[in-house]
Every structure is written in C-alpha cells, then in structure tokens.
Write a protein that binds this DNA or RNA. Structure first.
Length: 202
DNA sequence: CCAACGATGGGT
DNA sequence: CCCATCGTTGGA
C-alpha cells in the first residue's frame, strides 16, 4: 500500500524509524525500480546543526524542505552526486529523512545499467547497487530534475511495510557530520541490525 | 565576480 | 587517511 500524506506529516524521528522496511518505488519511461529501505537518518532543522536548514537557512533549491510532509527534497553534492530527503512535519518545519541505503527489489538489471555495472553482474554485485545515499539515487534515477516531487503521486512513492520478525531496528550516530558539534552524537540514524545492504562506513 | 564548501564515494 | 570534482551559495 502506498504511504499517504498523514504518515509524513508527523514527528521526524518516528518517520525515520518507521520508514525502515518500507519500499521506495520509482516508475520511469525505461522501467520500474524499487528497493527496501534499510537505513535512514533524521535531520531536525532549524535547531539541528547537521541539517542544511540549520538556523532556518532557506535557498530556492531547499523550498521542498519547507513544504508539508510527503514531498521529496533532492539535492546535489560534490557536483556529481545526488541524495534524497523525505520531507516530514507540517509546512514551514524544515525537517526530513535522508534515505541512506536500500536492498534492491525490482529492476535490478536496470539499476546495474544506471550504475555502470554489466546487467549480468548486477545480481552478484547486488549490495553495491544501493548501499549509499548517492548510489541509490543513481540506481533509481533520482536527481534534481524531480526535486520537490510529491510522494503521494504515482511516479515516486513509498509502499508501507516493516521489519521481518527476525529483524531488529537499531539507532546510531549519523554519518559524515563531524562539523555538527553537539548534534554529531545524536542517535538519529536508523538501520536494520546486521543487514548486509546498509552503507559501509562507521 | 569569484572562492569556499560539501548529509559522497572510491582508492590507498 | 586522502582527494577528485563542480554546482550552489553568499559575500565583495
């Protein structure tokens, strides 16, 4: 079942935790790809020093962050990588959940193609397709041309699910935010304990 | 106009 | 640990 608006317009930490186990789906002209979310991070602007919206910083490209929950904020990093934020909370509360890793489910060959991996090798290199925030965007063809897209639409959306019986959600500190001072130790990263598809670092 | 920066990823 | 890489941002 597609997740609806009311799910996203809630407390960001709850959304970050509850998105674990759900599936991100993208329909494009070249096919459908989907993956199970195994790792997320919450960014709690404007107070959170790790968040782009810290201190209510607001640029044109950040507009979606300030919308009500249920939109995608897609941003570019280091000139050639993209990341996807799931916008949460009510309008004018600039908080979001970064999707950090997926377990590939549908369109594995297409994901490999987009990642520059021979489709025949894709199954062997499964975890390398989507075990990082920018890798999963490349595999799922997510870039700034769809920044602000409504996740309650039919192109990019999330299907509800959750952990299996034998899976446990754990939290830890967030990755690559050493600049965030007292916020760098907040346990706002969520992942499936021991899952092989989570991003490598830390 | 222009320099600094980066919620990454890949290599050593 | 090191660094390539380049669009965006914000200050001059």
């Amino acid at each position: 079942m597609k997740i609806e608006r009311s799910f996203y317009e809630r407390n960001t930490l709850n959304v970050a935790r509850e998105l674990i186990g759900c599936s991100l789906v993208h329909r494009t002209p070249d096919g459908i790809t989907s993956g199970r979310i195994v790792e997320t991070e919450a960014y709690l602007g404007p107070e959170d020093k790790a968040a782009h919206s810290y201190g209510s910083r607001h640029t044109k490209l950040m507009d979606p962050l300030y919308q009500r929950g249920g939109y995608a904020h897609i941003f570019q990093l280091h000139g050639y990588n993209y990341c996807i934020n799931i916008v949460t909370e009510k309008i004018n509360i600039p908080q979001a959940v970064l999707i950090r890793a997926l377990e590939p489910v549908k369109g594995i060959g297409l994901m490999g193609l987009r990642r520059g991996i021979d489709p025949k090798e894709s199954v062997k290199k499964l975890r390398n397709l989507t075990n990082g925030p920018s890798k999963l965007c490349e595999a799922m063809s997510i870039d700034t041309s769809i920044n602000g897209i409504d996740l309650c639409g039919n192109e990019l959306f999330i299907e509800s699910d959750g952990p299996n019986k034998d899976e446990v959600i754990v939290s830890s500190t967030r990755i690559n935010i050493d600049y965030a001072e007292e916020f760098k130790n907040k346990p706002w990263r969520f992942l499936l304990d021991g899952n092989k598809f989570v991003s490598k670092k830390k």
